[in-house]
Amino acid sequence: MIKNMQSTTNNNDFSLAHREQKVDHYSGESLSFIQLVFRNFARNKVALVSVLVIILIALTAFLGPQLSHFNPNTPDPQNSNLTPGQNGHWFGTDNLGRDIFTRVAAGTGISLEVAFVAMIIDLIIGTTYGLISGYFGGKVDIIMQRVTEVLSTIPMIIIVTLLVLVMKPGLMSIITAMMLVGWINMSRIVRAQVLKIKNEEYILAAKTMGMPNSKIIFSEVLPNAMGQIVTTFMFSIPNAIFLEAFLAFIGLGVPAPLSSLGTMINDGYTQAIVFPHMVIFPVLFLALIMLGFNIIADAIRDAIEES
Rank of each mutant, 00 (worst) to 15 (best):
Ile158Val: 15
Gly85Cys: 02
Leu222Ala: 14
Gly182Arg: 00
Ser133Gly: 01
Leu195Asp: 05
Glu29Asp: 15
Leu222Lys: 09
His69Val: 12
Ala272Glu: 05
Leu247Ser: 08
Trp90Gly: 00
Pro72Glu: 02
Gln35Ala: 15
Pro77Trp: 06
Ile110Thr: 09
Gly262Ile: 01
Ser260Ile: 01
Glu149Arg: 10
Asp141Ala: 08
Met144Val: 01
Phe249Pro: 01
Lys207Ala: 07
Arg188Thr: 08
Glu305Tyr: 08
Leu112Ile: 05
Gly85Ser: 10
Val166Lys: 13
Gly268His: 04
Ala225Thr: 02
Gly227Tyr: 05
Val190Tyr: 11
Ile265Tyr: 10
Ile184Pro: 09
Asn95Ile: 10
Asn12Phe: 14
Val279Ile: 15
Ile175Thr: 00
Val117Asp: 04
Thr263Gln: 03
Val140Cys: 09
His277Gln: 14
Leu163Lys: 07
Ala42Lys: 14
Asn213Ala: 14
Leu48Asp: 06
Val230Asp: 11
Lys168Leu: 07
Ile142Lys: 06
Trp90Glu: 01
Lys22Met: 15
Ala61Asn: 00
Phe41Ala: 04
Arg39Trp: 06
Ala42Arg: 11
Ser50Trp: 03
Ser236Ile: 01
Asp302Lys: 03
Gly126Ile: 07
Ala256Ser: 05
Asp76Val: 07
Leu131Ser: 03
Leu288Gly: 09
Phe281Thr: 04
Ile289Phe: 06
Thr128Glu: 13
Met186Ser: 06
Glu200Arg: 15
Leu286Ala: 05
Ser133Ala: 10
Ser236Thr: 00
Ile143Ala: 13
Ile158Gly: 08
Ile289Val: 11
Ser68Met: 08
Thr9Lys: 15
Ser30Thr: 13
Met226Gly: 10
Glu200Ala: 12
Asn79Tyr: 11
Glu149Gly: 14
Lys3Cys: 12
Thr263Asn: 11
Phe218Val: 01
Phe38His: 12
Ile229Glu: 11
Asn213Ser: 13
Leu31Asp: 14
Arg98Ile: 10
Ile154Glu: 11
Ile175Arg: 03
Val37Asp: 10
Ala245Asn: 04
Val53Met: 15
Val230Ile: 15
Arg39Thr: 06
Val283Glu: 08
Gly134Lys: 03
Gln21Asp: 13
Thr153Ile: 11
Glu244Thr: 00
Gly130Cys: 07
Met172Ser: 09
Phe70Lys: 09
Thr148Pro: 11
Ser111Asn: 04
Ile154Tyr: 06
Val51Lys: 11
Ile100Lys: 08
Leu36Asp: 13
Ala287Pro: 04
Gly268Asn: 05
Lys215Ala: 12
Ser111Asp: 04
Ala105Phe: 09
Thr270Val: 14
Tyr26Met: 10
Met211Trp: 02
Ile100Ser: 10
Asp122Ser: 14
Thr176Cys: 06
Pro72Met: 04
Leu291Ile: 13
Val37Leu: 11
Ile174Trp: 03
Asn294Gln: 05
Ile237Gly: 00
Ile100Ala: 08
Gly88Cys: 08
Thr108Lys: 00
Gln145Thr: 14
Ile175Ala: 06
Ala256Tyr: 02
Met264Arg: 09
Thr263Cys: 07
Ile217His: 02
Glu20Gly: 00
Asp76Gly: 04
Arg43Tyr: 11
Phe233Cys: 01
Gln21Ser: 13
Phe14Tyr: 14
Gly85Asp: 06
Ser214Gly: 01
Arg43Phe: 09
Ala17Thr: 11
Ala287Met: 14
Asp13Thr: 12
Ala206Asp: 06
Ile237Pro: 02
Lys139Val: 14
Ile154Gly: 09
Lys198Ala: 04
Lys22Tyr: 12
Leu123Val: 02
Leu247Cys: 07
Asp94Ile: 10
